[in-house]
């Protein structure tokens, strides 16, 4: 039987772990490669790096990070942020990423999904969607709207319609990120995650809101997610990856315990 995956997300700016996630200020902890390796050795199933580097002339720094991670970390990892073309995607895959992750750029130009899927294979293309709860309307019948640019810009697109379109265009996996739950540490948006999981045939990775082990349990059962994304709850040192997996295993969730 397939195990549920625990995936850690690392935001990287100019080659360093972003300060926004308030890491303790020590030298090692600011290094995404060291952090990735620590989680890998502690049994993490997969990694996601979001490159939030603002200036395009510093983009190549991320390629160096990817190269270094790929030499030391032998689990799948995806990279997102700033991918606008097949060329961008290929650079990251060549540097060692297993998958590429598209978000706002795909909303602005949906053909990006088709192009990447055709060029690198659907299994290597992850569509991340930032979603906010809104009033039900003709435009947004599900009551969930796609937002872009880190949640700042509403798009008028219905989230369920968009994930279905994303799958049809060739996305191999989905990251469902609730902007409302993100950063609250009060739990994933279960209703949204479940709606998405029941609407598509590709794996769904729940994101936003994880603070306690129960939250992971809830989203992997009631939320029907295939994988749970964690960030601050492991970055702050409140929980380790291995302790989370043991806890889930004791609750009857199949997770990979030997690594």
């Amino acid at each position: 039987m397939l195990s549920k995956r625990i995936i850690a997300c690392l935001d990287v700016r100019d080659g360093n772990l972003a300060k926004s996630i308030k890491f303790v200020e020590t030298k090692d902890i600011g290094d995404p490669v060291a952090k990735a390796r620590e989680y890998y050795e502690d049994g993490l199933d997969e990694l996601v790096f979001y490159d939030i580097t603002a200036s395009s002339d510093k983009r190549n720094i991320m390629l160096d990070v990817v190269e270094s991670v790929a030499k030391q970390v032998f689990i799948p990892f995806s990279v997102g942020g700033g991918i606008r073309s097949v060329e961008d995607a290929n650079k990251l895959l060549w540097a060692g990423a297993e998958k590429i992750n598209v978000n706002s750029a795909a909303v602005q130009r949906p053909d990006l999904i088709d192009e990447c899927s055709h060029a690198v294979g659907a299994q290597n293309v992850v569509l991340s969607v930032d979603i906010a709860q809104v009033d039900v309307s003709d435009l947004v019948p599900s009551g969930y709207e796609v937002v872009i640019n880190g949640g700042r810009t509403p798009t008028g697109r219905d989230a369920i319609a968009w994930v279905v379109e994303g799958e049809q265009r060739g996305a191999g996996e989905l990251v469902v990120n609730s902007i409302d739950a993100d950063g609250t540490r009060e739990g994933y948006e279960l209703k949204l995650t479940r709606m998405v999981a029941e609407s598509v045939g590709i794996p769904v990775i729940a994101s936003g809101g994880a603070g306690e082990p129960e939250h992971l349990y809830d989203v992997l059962t009631e939320g029907k997610a295939d994988a749970a994304l964690v960030a601050s709850m492991v970055h702050y040192g409140d929980y380790t990856v291995s302790s989370l997996k043991r806890w889930l295993s004791n609750k009857g969730i199949k997770v990979r315990l030997k690594y």
Binding site: L2, S3, D45, Q123, G201, D226
Partner: peptide
Amino acid sequence: ASLKVPHIGWNS
């Protein structure tokens, strides 16, 4: 129908 194709992830 709840099992997805492709089979993606860790399995024993």
